[in-house]
Nucleic acid binder design. Structure first.
Length: 510
DNA sequence: CGCGTTTGACCAGCGC
DNA sequence: GCGCTGGTCAAACGCG
């Protein structure tokens, strides 16, 4: 356990240092010769591939050759009357077969390396475009900003596509009004040039973050199906999981939860909701209300609203599902932004929650404010955005151009939304915005914060990477039953995904 | 009268 | 198998 924590801290440090990209991209060129000098003992797949394969080949060859002097074998062959030369031929042919096989593996590892290199380059390009765009935005006219915003949102789309485990194109097919717009954006997106590469990468088993099945047809196409815990849904999900076959990761839904101080019984998030139930939840004197989106017939998005038991001024809103309809402007920004966070969570959700929630993982972080939590507790992984805490203001005093530390698309998300670093006087420190005040800018603020805080993204990335890098274990081994939460410094998400089966909507206050 | 809310019943999953 | 809990349904009700 302690060892695991140490390993995770190392990973975090490594990711945070920005070495991740550099090393991987360098490795593609230099064939990873410097592994001995590495201060951090991270797993170097390709390095191992090269060196170990050769080593393995030698070992195997020697083993095979040694097999020729295996006394037991010799005794047997002599006693059976089989000639030794025949046996040697056999082992020789086996050796050559193995060598051929090793050659193939070698080629494969080379291909993988080049693919990784390509991804790294694409990511770097994208990041460069982001920085440029943000700089332009900081100095540009409103119109320029707007066009930049469009451009950036298309970049973000690319990023989302990269993250989005579902087949590309699936999401908008049933949503003409939005898809057309997005298609246009994509067509002019500079980042779109990466899409082809990205989609190719996604096909690769190593790079497939979460090969979730495209279930969201039910969001757009089959609108009658229920999401999130409907009495029918478990069966449906189960059936679908069975259909996926053993290779496919079971589909899981992510939730995005928002904690905010509000006297109002409900936060208005730009969508229309209809209450369909209310229930007393265990351990909370306040009832939990259930709402579903009524902006479109059959929209599968639901939300739960409940007051915090400890502090009843805190309103907890939990979203799940994708809108299958265009969102009003007030709802789109946050929806897009948070879909990234939620999809990232989904991507990581395919692996053990134990890894995600290893205690103390993020506690080594020097920033204390808990702005967001990842909760992988069953049945759904949840990202919680806590807008009730004071953030550490130092978070926003760091250099804006810190190198990205992990090639995850969260970086690609919403820098167009007035990065705090570029417009400091206008913006509050962070989501410490009191509800009811300047809620129009809050969406932007939160969004910008998500994008701007490299520490948060690094932390989240590290969390996800640790999940992805860890084989799935039996769920509930270490954290059975409890709420497993990892504190992350920064903000993750708000509900929001017009595309992904996990979250939705924007967030503002009444 | 139409629409949204309320509320008790029902169902499924899960733990013991 | 039973009870608990979370989530949803749908009839009853209220309001404009």
């Amino acid at each position: 356990m302690e060892k695991q924590q140490q390993q995770q801290r190392r990973e975090l440090t490594f990711l945070h240092s920005g070495d991740f990209l550099r090393r991987n991209s360098d490795r593609g060129i230099e064939n990873s010769i410097d592994c001995d000098t590495t201060p951090i003992k991270e797993m170097d797949f390709f390095s191992r591939t090269k060196h170990s394969l050769e080593q393995d080949r030698k070992n195997e060859s020697s083993t095979l050759l040694d097999s020729g002097v295996n006394t037991g074998l010799n005794l047997l062959t002599s006693s059976c009357g089989v000639s030794k030369t025949k046996n040697d031929d056999k082992s020789n042919s086996e050796t050559s077969k193995l060598q051929v096989e090793l050659e193939k593996l070698h080629d494969e590892s080379r291909k993988l390396r080049s693919m990784l290199d390509q991804i790294s380059r694409s990511y770097n390009e994208l990041q460069g475009q982001l920085v440029l765009a943000m700089q332009k935005q900081a100095h540009g006219s409103p119109q320029e900003q707007k066009s930049e915003l469009n451009r950036m949102s298309s970049s973000k789309m690319s990023a989302q596509q990269f993250m989005d485990p579902r087949p590309s194109g699936g999401l908008n097919v049933n949503e003409p009004s939005v898809s057309d717009e997005r298609a246009n954006e994509l067509s002019v997106s500079p980042a779109n040039t990466n899409n082809e590469v990205i989609s190719k990468e996604r096909d690769h088993p190593m790079l497939q973050i979460a090969p979730c099945r495209q279930v969201s047809n039910e969001d757009g196409g089959d609108q009658t199906s229920q999401s999130w815990g409907s009495p029918r849904s478990p069966k449906v999900d189960k059936m679908k999981n069975e259909e996926q076959g053993p290779d496919q990761v079971p589909y899981r839904k992510a939730r995005v939860s928002v904690r905010a101080r509000s006297e109002a019984p409900l936060i208005s998030d730009g969508c229309q909701w209809r209450k369909y139930g209310q229930k007393m939840a265990k351990g909370n004197p306040c009832p939990r209300a259930y709402y579903r989106c009524t902006m479109a017939v059959g929209c599968p998005v639901r939300k739960q609203v409940q007051r915090c038991a400890e502090d009843r001024t805190i309103l907890i809103t939990t979203y799940e599902g994708n809108h299958n309809h265009p969102l009003p402007p007030a709802a789109t920004a946050m929806a897009n932004t948070t879909s990234a966070a939620a999809s990232m969570l989904l991507s990581g959700s395919t692996t053990s929650k134990d890894t995600l929630t290893s205690s103390g993982f993020f506690h080594s972080m020097p920033y204390a404010s808990t702005m967001a939590t990842l909760s992988a507790s069953a049945p759904f992984p949840t990202i919680t955005l806590d807008l009730t805490h004071n953030p550490n203001p130092m978070q926003f005093l760091r250099a804006p151009h810190q190198p990205a530390t992990f090639p995850l698309p969260l970086h690609g998300c919403p820098p167009h939304l007035r990065h705090p670093m570029y417009a400091p006087p206008k913006l509050p420190a962070m989501p410490n915005v009191q509800l009811g005040q300047r809620h129009a800018s809050m969406v932007e603020t939160v969004t910008a914060a998500i994008a701007s805080d490299p520490n948060f993204t690094a932390a989240l990335a590290a969390a996800i990477s640790s999940i992805i890098g860890t084989p799935r274990t039996n769920e509930g081994d270490n954290n059975s039953g409890g709420t497993n939460t990892v504190a992350i410094n920064g903000v993750v998400g708000l509900p929001g995904s017009p595309q992904l089966p996990q979250s939705c909507t924007t967030f503002s206050t009444n």
